[in-house]
């Protein structure tokens, strides 16, 4: 059955008890993102402290993949420098958009590698990226630009 490849146990665990769920104060920036194809929404808040991601909190109205992804994002970037977190974001995005051809690096992505199976389902890639695009957008709102990434297009929110 292919279903287990996509819904790996790690993903289901994060979905059942998501980290960072529930909006918290104080925060430096908030981003609201929607997936126009299905109407899923995320509101994500970021608090930065001396160049590090101090806290992420989010409210996600979406499928298991988008919820689990926001949870994994929280685990992966909190405590890292903004620049490092953008490198993780880029790696996650490359994997998610890689159609299953990109071998993910577990050292960088941790639990995020569980989303490699999602990359085989193009319709679900946006679900996996929704929280990450909100994070990127929130960071831009705080710092004015995104350190460590080229260009500014957030592929998670283009309409199809």
């Amino acid at each position: 059955m292919q279903l287990e490849q996509m819904y790996q146990e790690i993903i289901l665990d994060h979905y059942r008890s998501p980290h960072g769920a529930g909006l918290r104060d104080p925060f430096d920036a908030e981003s609201f993102q929607i997936n126009p194809t299905c109407g899923d929404e995320i509101t994500l808040r970021v608090r930065l402290d001396e160049g590090k991601v101090a806290e992420i909190s989010h409210e996600t109205l979406g499928c298991s993949i988008s919820q689990a992804s926001a949870s994994v994002l929280t685990d992966l970037v909190v405590g890292r420098s903004v620049e490092e977190s953008m490198r993780v974001l880029t790696a996650f995005q490359e994997m998610a958009q890689g159609r299953g051809q990109v071998e993910p690096d577990e050292d960088v992505l941790g639990d995020g590698v569980a989303f490699a199976g999602v990359a085989r389902y193009p319709a679900r890639v946006k679900c996996a990226l929704l929280g990450w695009m909100a994070f990127k957008d929130a960071v831009v709102r705080v710092s004015g630009d995104v350190p460590g990434t080229a260009g500014g297009t957030s592929d998670g929110k283009d309409a199809t």
Partner: peptide
């Protein structure tokens, strides 16, 4: 169960 997830199981 979110509609996307239902759809994924059905698709499978």
């Amino acid at each position: 169960v979110h509609a996307h997830d239902v759809g994924q199981v059905l698709d499978d």
